[in-house]
């Protein structure tokens, strides 16, 4: 079996609201899997279903080969989780918190101590291990929570928006730590995030959900390449506002604008860009540079999530 998570038409209703709607996807072993979606899309509910904390209304989920509904305890034995909140006991020290979870997972005392030291040293927190967590920054608490999730060397960890609420510096630091630890521990990561560049950087595979439904699934590269338009930037002399209606009339380009003196537009991926450059030159524009940008995951995400009427990607 090559997949660590297999869901089949997984569905969960809360009274009249369908939070998760017939989700079907697979996550292979060893992947950093990004589960993306706007607030209320059903990401946290999906994690709860996969951990066996909630029962599905319909469909099935198998995690590490165990049925989430009937074998939730087996799943929780072999996974680690950093959920919506760090979930740390703030009256206690980092050492006490990790020691508690080490005991929970039946790590022998010697192994527990060395593992806690290894993780806290890696995260640069070993010197402060005896301090109560109440006075720590959110970034430091998140690091301890990640250490807790990895403590018992699980095969799979669930991280629910681990960088949410962190300042940019702390977020980058945490992301780097996470990438290094995931690589070193050879653990499969199920990551939900709002941060698209984070997903692009860390994830080998992503799924995008909207209103509980899967709207895209594949590698970030594949999803980007499926985007119909590419973003083009044209630099030069004579770029004026009057070009915009002309672009619409002659080339059907509706999404265009002048930004800091250069022209930015959405160009259909199936058309030759040279025809546009030639026409611009003929109109007296002194074209100096043309940049073709690949669509970012963020643009793909916005296409799918903000403009819901567009065709879904099925990579």
């Amino acid at each position: 079996m090559n997949d660590v998570i297999v869901t089949q038409s997984l569905t969960r209703d809360f009274k009249t609201v369908r939070a998760v709607d017939h989700l079907t996807f697979q996550v292979p072993y060893g992947t950093v899997f990004g589960f993306l979606g706007p607030n209320g899309a059903g990401k946290t509910t999906t994690i709860r279903l996969l951990l066996g904390l909630l029962e599905p209304t319909g469909g099935t989920a198998h995690v590490l080969g165990f049925n989430s509904q009937s074998e939730g305890h087996r799943i929780r034995e072999q996974t680690g989780a950093l959920l919506e909140h760090p979930g740390l006991y703030e009256r206690l020290s980092a050492l006490d918190n990790l020691d508690f979870y080490g005991r929970v997972y039946h790590l022998p005392a010697i192994q527990r101590r060395s593992r806690i030291q290894e993780l806290l040293e890696h995260l640069g927190l070993w010197e402060r291990r005896h301090e109560p967590l109440a006075g720590w920054s959110r970034g430091m608490k998140q690091k301890v929570a990640i250490a807790r999730a990895l403590l018992h060397r699980p095969k799979l960890i669930f991280l629910d928006e681990p960088t949410a609420g962190l300042d940019p510096v702390a977020a980058v630091e945490l992301r780097n730590d996470l990438a290094q630890l995931a690589e070193a521990e050879k653990v499969t990561v199920f990551l939900t995030t709002h941060n698209l560049s984070e997903a692009e950087r860390l994830c080998g595979l992503v799924a995008i959900i909207r209103a509980g439904k899967l709207v895209a699934f594949g590698s970030p590269e594949t999803l980007r390449s499926r985007r119909k338009n590419e973003r083009v930037e044209i630099y030069g002399q004579g770029l004026e506002q009057s070009l915009l209606p002309w672009l619409d009339t002659h080339f059907g380009v509706r999404q265009a604008g002048l930004v800091n003196g250069h022209l930015e537009l959405e160009w259909p991926g199936d058309r030759e860009l040279s025809s546009l450059v030639r026409a611009l030159v003929e109109r007296g524009v002194g074209v100096e540079e043309v940049r073709r940008n690949k669509a970012s995951l963020e643009e793909v995400f916005l296409d799918l999530v903000v403009d819901g009427d567009k065709e879904p990607y099925t990579a």
Partner: peptide, 14 residues
């Protein structure tokens, strides 16, 4: 209240 319950429940503890 302190948001530690869900993490505790997501552990292997019976």
């Amino acid at each position: 209240e302190r948001h530690t319950l869900e993490t505790l429940l997501a552990s292997r503890l019976p």
